[in-house]
Design a protein around this nucleic acid. Structure first.
Length: 811
DNA sequence: TATAGGCATACGAGAGGACATCC
DNA sequence: CGATGTCCTCTCGTATGCCT
């Protein structure tokens, strides 16, 4: 029997002669594309009330809506449900579609207590049970069958993961980007507006295909007869290139669905899938586009999803993300004019082709850059790239737990019912502790952080839904969280606590190796492990989670508060002055002590911390400033600025780092903070401020500096309070511009009376003489710097330059 | 088909008061 | 002189976007 070593990339199933067959698509070690077909039977778990139900289950079959269903076998297994031993029944049915049918049926039975894991997708069940991890080497025994397929199909007789967990390398990526006919002011219309150009970029290809001829020397531009020919060429290129991954930027919702629709319209057969299928769409809240046998990597879904917390950007445009991750900004063209240029001035199309190709290139580079992260996620979670690409944090955790539960003989708890969900949503979880700072300018600060505070609490105190006990438990050694009136058994490692501990220790090992040698793949692994570890606490408090536990989530934060306040007390006892603290960080004033003493402080703390918990010395800062809150009720939390030893600034919470503040106010605030932190030079900062105010009054500043950007978070019609950005969004909609939730609205406030929203205008339609100087001075600049100058005793009048005049008047 | 909570701030909505005007 | 309308001030709720 021949043996194949191959890396699976995609998975699907089909019913063959009435039986479900799994198809794994991938590439062999020597680069051949193959598919592997394997028989597998769908099943789920039932916990019986009485053992006698087994026989009734075994004989269950019938018909519903003309489709027959049947239970093929029932097996008794000892399992655990939240740590408690149960006699579970493994109910195997004949087809995946029988699973929901049979579940609904038997759920009503009196002798069935509960039904579990019936909602786990068939292909995922297969991967978990066979311990197969996509993009990781698998050994298959079997013969090549005679199926109709683009690539050889091996009928597996045996399949297992390879001994060494070798990861797939050298994947072929093909980036796709289209430009479409899009008349000004009209919405997207896939039925009537053709694709004008299509760019592809891969390792061996970089080309734009378009169907209007113009004179050009670009060898990258290829002309074809018409749109149908363009689609034919796209098909040809995909088949020639045989990519493992097709990538795009929002290609889930735009490029691929558009290509699909146009191909249908023009009757072009886009049979690019390994099984001759085309692009398939999974419609929902947002569309997912899929091609059998090829993984579809939509870069925006990954950047906005799993990597959201690790990549700081206030915009998810291709341009913004590329400049953040690649340090490149693209060359823009006026896309709004494309339709007109196409119709009337085709000789001017070249820049559009360049732009199109550039987008494909940037997307390719982004995919290449992020592939190590996505690959690590695939290896960690064990689901195909297509799925890991689109996962939310809760799905990430849950998929990981489902992969791990077998090691603990656990069965997943059921998803909450609507009623249970409503109940969970009602309770609110107390969060972290934030220490109120005393406003002022400080020198010589040391900053400390608990390393992965919440995950380390979970692991170190065995916090897990299966270890929760009553506070007055008599269980020996149980750890009591008095704040929440619960305790945690220490007799046996809890499922989630053990899993979190494993993630933390794996990350520590990777970090250790990285200290000796740089490695982008290990960097990516460390990053994904951190993201995963940090997601568990939120998951425990997430109402829709299977392993939801209010007690656990509340205990984690309670212990977080306990540890941070204890550390604050110890710092004060050690002679430091505590300036600020938020959740897991502490800012100390050295009070004349040495940096060495500051570094040593962590040892005193760590000596008494349990398990994996650790306080880290984050760094020394020559100066830092905290300001009072607007209402003057004390120091403002989550707003501060620090000066690093290398001269750079750390600004948190201030307008300078907020999107919905005008450019000018951000600039002024940052400038003032810098002057004050570097040299405590408030006089110089004041002079600068007066200069800017004068410039604004005299209308010497560009409109662009006055632009305020605000995100529209919901449909325009559902707003109760109509703010300036909503008013502008309404105007834009009136002009036929497509405005959807998530859009960033830009506006400038112009002169006049009344509400601000009535004076807001689109920046493009605003002249430099029109912006409202008073608004920008009184509502933007002054609020941004007032509290900073207040630290030096400067009043608002002084800031406005009125101080001197008043003194003259008095005199 | 939302991982969690804590917090600052801006602006509109709406109530209530001062004041002017009109009959 | 009371009824009515306008404008201003104040409080509160809504909305956004940050921090950990």
């Amino acid at each position: 029997m021949p043996t194949f070593h191959f890396y699976p990339i995609d998975i699907t199933y089909r019913i063959v002669s009435g039986k479900p067959v799994i198809y794994l698509y991938g590439r062999t070690k020597d680069g051949q594309r193959i598919a592997v077909a394997d028989r597998f039977d769908p099943y789920f778990w039932a916990i019986p009330q009485k053992k006698s139900v087994k026989e009734r289950l075994e004989n269950l079959s019938g018909e519903k809506d003309g489709e027959s269903y049947s239970v093929t076998s029932v097996e008794e297994k000892k399992k655990r449900l939240l740590g408690k031993e149960v006699e579970a029944l493994k109910v195997t049915v004949s087809q995946p579609k029988d699973v929901p049918l049979v579940r609904e049926l038997i759920r009503e039975w009196d002798d069935i207590q509960s039904v579990h894991e019936a909602d786990i997708l068939f292909t995922r069940r297969y991967l978990i049970d066979k311990k197969i991890i996509p993009m990781t080497l698998v050994v298959v025994e079997g013969e090549e069958g005679r199926e109709e397929s683009r690539i050889p199909v091996i009928a597996a007789t045996a399949i297992r993961p390879a001994e060494d967990e070798e990861t797939m390398k050298g994947l072929g990526i093909l980036a796709v980007d289209i430009e479409t006919y899009y008349p000004k002011g009209k919405g997207i219309d896939m039925d009537n507006n053709p694709i004008l150009m299509l760019a592809v970029h891969g390792e061996t290809i970089s080309r734009v295909i378009t169907w209007k001829r113009f004179a050009t020397k670009r060898r990258s531009i290829e002309f074809v007869q018409d749109e149908a020919a363009l689609l034919h060429r796209f098909r040809e290129i995909v088949l020639e290139e045989q990519p493992d991954i097709i990538t795009g930027y929002f290609s889930d919702g735009f490029d691929l669905p558009y290509i699909k629709r146009r191909a249908e319209k023009l009757k072009v057969n886009l049979d690019i899938g390994a099984d001759f299928s085309g692009i398939s769409l999974k419609k929902g809240m947002d569309t997912e586009s899929k091609i059998t046998g090829i993984a579809h990597f939509d870069v925006i879904k990954f950047v906005r999803g799993g990597l959201r917390t690790s990549i700081a950007t206030d915009s998810y445009s291709l341009n913004a993300v590329a400049s953040k991750l690649l340090g490149e900004t693209k060359h823009e063209v006026e896309l709004d004019d494309l339709a007109e240029v196409w119709d009337k001035r085709p000789e001017k199309l070249e820049p559009y082709c360049d732009y199109n190709l550039q987008d494909a290139l940037l997307t390719y580079q982004l995919a290449e850059k992020l592939l190590p992260n996505l690959t690590e996620l695939v290896k960690l979670i064990g689901l195909p790239l297509q799925d890991c690409n689109r996962m939310s944090f809760s799905q990430l955790v849950e998929s990981f737990l489902l992969r791990k539960e077998g090691e603990f003989d656990e069965i997943a708890p059921e998803k909450p019912t609507e009623h249970e969900l409503a109940k969970r949503r009602k309770v609110r979880l107390q969060g972290a502790f934030v220490h109120e700072p005393t406003p002022g300018l400080y020198h010589d600060l040391a900053v400390y952080d608990f390393r992965s505070l919440y995950p380390s609490i979970i692991a170190s105190h065995n916090i897990s839904p299966d270890t929760v006990r009553e506070a007055d438990t008599l269980e020996e050694g149980a750890f009591v969280v008095r704040e929440e009136k619960v305790a945690y058994s220490t007799a046996k490692k809890g499922f989630i606590a053990a899993v979190v501990e494993e993630v933390i220790t794996r990350r520590m090992r990777v970090k250790d190796i990285l200290k000796k040698k740089k490695d982008p793949f290990l960097e990516a692994r460390a990053m994904m492990l951190k993201i995963l570890a940090n997601s568990f606490y939120g998951y425990l408090g997430f109402p829709s989670a299977r392993w939801y536990s209010f007690a656990c989530a509340a205990s984690v934060t309670a212990l977080g508060r306990r540890y941070i306040t204890e550390t604050i007390e110890k710092a004060e006892k050690a002679g430091f002055k505590v300036l600020y603290s938020d959740t897991d960080s502490i800012f100390l004033s050295l009070q004349g002590k040495s940096k060495a003493a500051a570094k040593k402080f962590v040892d005193d703390i760590n000596e008494h911390l349990p398990g994996l918990m650790e306080l880290e010395y984050e760094g020394f800062y020559p100066s830092g400033i905290f300001v009072s809150a607007k209402d003057n009720k004390g120091g403002a939390k989550k707003r501060y600025a620090l000066l690093r030893e290398d001269g750079s600034l750390v600004i948190k919470g201030f307008e300078a780092v907020r999107r919905n503040t005008s450019v000018i106010a951000k600039e002024v605030q940052e400038h003032v903070l810098k002057a004050i932190l570097e040299k405590a030079d408030d006089k110089k900062a004041l002079n600068y401020l007066h200069g800017v105010i004068k410039g604004i009054r005299e209308k010497k500043l560009a409109v662009e500096k006055m632009v305020i950007r605000t995100r529209l978070t919901k449909p325009i019609s559902s707003y109760d309070a109509i703010g300036p950005h909503v008013a502008i969004a309404k105007q834009m909609k009136g002009k036929g511009i497509d405005i959807a939730p998530g859009a960033i609205i830009r506006y400038v406030v112009t002169t006049g009376g009344g509400r601000i929203r009535d004076r807001a205008k689109l920046p493009e339609a605003t002249k430099q003489s029109e912006y409202d100087a008073d608004y920008y001075i009184n509502n933007q600049i002054i609020p941004a710097v007032e509290k900073i100058f207040e630290v030096f005793g400067h009043t608002k009048e002084e800031l406005l330059g009125k101080g001197a005049q008043m003194r003259l008047l008095e005199f």
